[in-house]
C-alpha cells in the first residue's frame, strides 16, 4: 500500500513538472504559433539569477537567501521578465515569419542565453541549497513523501485552477483565448495583439521560473543544461496533447510523468537506464496512431 502510494505520488510530482512546462510551451504556441526552444534556458536562467556570477563549484547564493515569500515572487518576476524581454527584442520582429523560421530563431536565442550563463558561471554544475526546509519527508498513509513533492503537486493543481479561472473569467483571458482561436479575427475585433502576446510570454516565463524553483530545490544543483530535459518532455507533451490545446498539454504532461515513473518500476534493473529511450519510443508509437495528438485543438489543422 505504502509503496503503491509512493509510486502514485512520484508519478504525480513528475507529471506536474512536465505539465507546468508543457503549459508554458502551449501558451505561447497558442497565440503565435511559436515553438519556443528558449524555454529550457529561461528555466536555467531563473535559477542562476538567484546566484552571484562565479565559476566556483559552490554557488555564491545571492538572492537565493531571501525568505521564501520574497524569493518566490523574485524568481517568478525574473522568469517573466526574461521571457517578455525575449519577446520584445527578438520575437516581435518575427510576427509575419513562418513557424519554422521562428522556431529556429528561438533555438538560437536559447543558445545565446545558455552560453551567456556559461560565460558567467562555467558549465560545471553547482550545488545550491534552495528552500532546504522542503526536503523533509512527511508521512501519509504509511508512505514517506518528501514535502517538496507534495507542494509541487499542490502548486501545479493551484496553478491549473488559477489559469482556468484567469482564462475563463477575466477579460484578458478571454482575449487570449480568442487570439489562440483565430488571431487575425481577434485583432479585427479589437484585441490588442502585442498585449496578449506579451501576457502569454509573461505567464510562460513565470511558469518556467516555478519549474526552476522546484527543480533547484529537488536536485540541489544548478546546471546550465537543467532545463533541457524538462523542455524536451514538454515539447513531446504538447505534440501528444495536440498542438495548441492547453488541456491536452497538461493531460499529456501528467501522462508522460506517469509512464516514466511506471517504467522506472516495472523495467528490469538492466533496462532502467534506458527509461527515457522507452518513453520516447512510446511517444513515437502514440504519434503513429494519433498524429494529430490526443486532444487536437481547433484551428491548428492545416487548411487548404
Amino acid at each position: 500500500m505504502g509503496s503503491l502510494l509512493q509510486i502514485v505520488f512520484d508519478a504525480l510530482a513528475l507529471g506536474s513538472l512536465y505539465a507546468l512546462a508543457a503549459l508554458g510551451i502551449a501558451l505561447i504556441f497558442g497565440v503565435m504559433r511559436l515553438v519556443n526552444f528558449a524555454h529550457g534556458d529561461v528555466i536555467a536562467f531563473s535559477v542562476f539569477a538567484l546566484l552571484w556570477p562565479s565559476v566556483d563549484a559552490v554557488a555564491i547564493v545571492f538572492a537565493g537567501n531571501l525568505p521564501w515569500f520574497l524569493l518566490i515572487p523574485f524568481a517568478l518576476a525574473i522568469g517573466a521578465g526574461l521571457s517578455v524581454l525575449s519577446e520584445i527584442v527578438v520575437f516581435r520582429r518575427f510576427r509575419r515569419a513562418n513557424p519554422a523560421t521562428m522556431m529556429i530563431a528561438s533555438f538560437a536565442l536559447g543558445f545565446v542565453i545558455r552560453y551567456f550563463l556559461l560565460m558567467l558561471f562555467s558549465s560545471r554544475p553547482k550545488s545550491i541549497s534552495l528552500l532546504p526546509a522542503l526536503s523533509q519527508p512527511v508521512e501519509i498513509f504509511g508512505a514517506r513523501i518528501p514535502l517538496l513533492q507534495l507542494i509541487t503537486i499542490v502548486v501545479t493543481i493551484a496553478v491549473l485552477f488559477g489559469l482556468i479561472a484567469f482564462l475563463r473569467r477575466t477579460r484578458f483571458g478571454l482575449e487570449m483565448r480568442a487570439a489562440a482561436e483565430n488571431f487575425t479575427m481577434a485583432r479585427m475585433l479589437g484585441v490588442r495583439a502585442n498585449r496578449v502576446i506579451m501576457g502569454a510570454f509573461a505567464l510562460s516565463g513565470a511558469l518556467a521560473a516555478a519549474i526552476a524553483l522546484i527543480l533547484g530545490s529537488q536536485t540541489g544543483t544548478a546546471n546550465i543544461m537543467m532545463g533541457a530535459n524538462v523542455m524536451l518532455m514538454a515539447f513531446i507533451a504538447t505534440v501528444i496533447g495536440g498542438m495548441g490545446s492547453l488541456a491536452g498539454a497538461v493531460l499529456a504532461g501528467f501522462l508522460l510523468g506517469a509512464v516514466a515513473t511506471v517504467m522506472q518500476v516495472i523495467l528490469p534493473p538492466d533496462a532502467r537506464a534506458f527509461r527515457d529511450a522507452f518513453v520516447y519510443g512510446a511517444v513515437i508509437l502514440v504519434l503513429i496512431f494519433r498524429p494529430q495528438g490526443l486532444l487536437s485543438a481547433r484551428g491548428t489543422k492545416e487548411r487548404v
Binding site: M103, L232, I236, V239, M243, D276, Y280, I284, I288
Partner: peptide, 17 residues
Amino acid sequence: RLSGIAASIATFAMLAM
C-alpha cells in the same frame, strides 16, 4: 507521416532517444 512542427519535434525526440 507527421508534418510541420510535430515532425520537427518528433525528430528531436529521435535524437534524444
